[in-house]
Amino acid sequence: MRYAEWCIAAPTLEADIAAAAMGLDDIGHSRVLYGSLRELGTPDAGTDDGASYANVPFLDRPWTDWSEFVAANAVLDSAFTLMMEALANGNVDVLRTRLKKMLQEERYHTLHGRSWMQEVNAGAALERAWTESLQWIGPENSDVDELHRAGRLAHGVRDLRRLLGERLDGKTPPSGLEWGGWEPIRRRTQPGGIDQATLDMLRGLAEKRYMPAGG
């Protein structure tokens, strides 16, 4: 969703198109993941209010600077992709088969993010995205490590942190992670949530304005 907001605002025409394409990719990936969850017996998460909507704080508000797009693309997208890889290489059959195309598409997100990371000094945004990515992966010896021990995830927390650092060309990771207030469901420490306008669009309320009366 945030990618799509930049489809006419990126620094070059090619980056505009890439933003739109990556946004579409990620909507498709969400559909695959929700479908997989349903098949695994997990009901859809409630999205009726912002407080229950699970997203990293970096996505709470629209980005106001291209460096935020770059940080999200290079860091958050890489963290999500690493988790998808860990699921695709785990022992859950549904995920082993469903996530392959997603990972092929994510390869191009990674190329895009890494190249722009070389072009733009995304300093503060990069550090913030990295911190939130590590919080999203979670603390050691929590659910991610339990799933790793059960074979459902091919990597545990330490591996995921290390691999994320490698994807970011060995840049220095943020230090002094704080876990106070960490929410295990929303996987974040900061209170708050996604802005109302975006939430309304995600719930399809924006489209409802165009429906005929009683539709």
């Binding site: 990556m22 895009h112 190249s115």
Partner: peptide, 13 residues
Amino acid sequence: PDDNLAMAYARAT
């Protein structure tokens, strides 16, 4: 500016 970004742009476009 580089091959990697060119690949990402070609695939997106």
